[in-house]
């Protein structure tokens, strides 16, 4: 079960599990921030199988939205390949190359914030990997990636509800409705019917 406690929600909202070692021809890990701990925990669980698994592992890691950087612990695992990227955006082309070159039997492990899990999952989906080959585990910040349904701009690291769209400036409330294709929650204008009547922003997604 997931280590993060989530409020009950609607059916489009993603749910997360706990990473566990699987048999596979190769293993790709993508994680940010506290997600590193999900990976180290998983290898600890693997016990005697860990060295064989690590010999076929590629870990791509980036710091979390608040700067949490556990690169050292991950690098110390001794995976066949370890790459620290400054951001998901910077790692994107590398991830695409790895997925393009992948053979049957690749196992994918995603850990950390919803944003990085969602973005990585989208890459995996576009590469056509079977859904069952992907495991996810949430760790760290609950901040959200939200698409404004009006101007289509995506605002990163949204922590409050409502918030101001960083593109068009409308006051948006954050729905739990989530698109895996966009890797984003949906933001909808909160004061359309009563312009200016905007409730105080509450920190809902720390």
């Amino acid at each position: 079960m997931t280590k993060t406690l989530f409020e009950p929600s609607i059916r489009s909202r993603p749910v997360y599990g706990e990473l566990s070692p699987r048999a596979g021809s190769a293993h790709l890990f993508i994680a940010d921030g506290e997600g590193a701990e999900a990976i180290t925990d998983m290898f600890a669980k693997a016990g005697a199988d860990a060295p064989a698994l690590l010999a076929k592992s590629h870990i791509i890691y980036m710091p979390g939205p608040y700067g949490t950087d556990l690169s050292a612990a991950l690098q110390a695992l001794g995976a066949a390949q370890f790459h620290r990227a400054p951001s998901f955006n910077a790692a994107e082309l590398r991830i695409r190359k790895v997925l393009t070159d992948a053979h049957m039997g690749l196992q994918v492990y995603l850990a950390g914030t919803e944003t990085v899990i969602g973005l990585a999952q989208r890459e995996v989906m576009m590469a056509g990997l079977p859904f069952e080959a992907v495991q996810t585990e949430h760790r760290g910040s609950l901040s959200r990636r939200v698409q404004c349904v009006h101007c289509k701009g995506v605002t990163e690291n949204v922590t409050t509800d409502p918030f101001v769209c960083s593109h068009c400036g409308l006051n948006l409330f954050v729905r739990d409705h989530y698109s895996r294709r966009l890797a984003a929650f949906q933001g909808v204008n909160i004061d359309a019917e009563d312009p200016g009547l905007v409730p105080a922003a509450v920190e809902r997604f720390k």
Binding site: I10, R11, S12, R13, Q147, V149, K152, R175, D176, H177, Y178, S179, R180, R181, L182, Q186
Partner: peptide, 22 residues
């Protein structure tokens, strides 16, 4: 409802915001 947002979703996902019916 927004096709641009919902495109690619499964049956329960695109109906997720409907109250009670689930």
């Amino acid at each position: 409802w927004s096709l641009d947002f919902d495109i690619g979703m499964s049956f329960h996902e695109w109906h997720a915001p409907v109250p009670k019916a689930h």
